[in-house]
């Protein structure tokens, strides 16, 4: 019974998300814009593309990910939006995500990979909001402890922090 209820809820949320996506419209951000998604996307809320404030991102649904990193001691718990969810939210159609950070660092991420793994756009670490000085407000965190193929050195470049914008190409 509980399983069926959960199933219904998941179905409902999916339908809801689908409806949102289909509508092709995103709400206007009310707070400071944390992230701008441009390029090959179907859903926008401005001429440049889709802009997200913290509330909008939180509204996409938050997930937790516990993993070690090359830049932290111990095993922190991250909280944020799954990349796949964001891509769904903007109706991304491109294969490459060109992410750019506040310090002008840029990297190309593979959209399929973003969808295949539970990669997180982290906004909190160990219950605290990531500030700019803490590599926030958005930090792409890969579940490298759970997936050994994500542990190689070359994967470290994908951990882009202080993300400002993503261009779907």
């Amino acid at each position: 019974m509980i399983t069926r209820l959960a199933g219904l809820l998941v179905l409902a949320s999916c339908l809801l998300a689908g409806q949102t996506a289909r509508a092709g419209t995103l709400p206007e951000p009310s707070g400071p814009v944390l992230l701008t998604v441009t390029g090959a996307i179907t859903n926008r809320n401005g001429p440049d593309g889709a802009r997200f404030d913290r509330a909008m991102l939180e509204a996409l649904g938050l997930s937790e990910l516990k993993t070690s990193t090359s830049w932290t001691d111990g095993v922190p718990t991250f909280r944020g939006v799954l990349a796949a969810r964001l891509l769904d939210a903007v109706g991304a159609t491109g294969k490459v995500l060109h992410a750019v950070a506040a310090n002008d660092y840029a990297v190309d991420l593979d959209a399929d990979e973003m969808r295949r793994y539970p990669i997180l756009l982290a906004m909190e670490q160990d219950g605290k909001q990531l500030r700019l000085r803490d590599r926030g407000p958005i930090w792409v965190v890969l579940p490298r402890d759970a997936y050994p193929e994500l542990q190689s050195v070359s994967q470290d470049q994908k951990w882009i922090w202080q993300v400002r914008s993503i261009e779907v190409r």
Partner: peptide, 18 residues
């Protein structure tokens, strides 16, 4: 912002591999 970014840079030296 520039200060905060600079901070985050120095902060990298405090933990992890660096």
């Amino acid at each position: 912002e520039r200060f905060e970014v600079l901070w985050s840079r120095i902060d990298l030296y405090r933990a992890g591999n660096l």
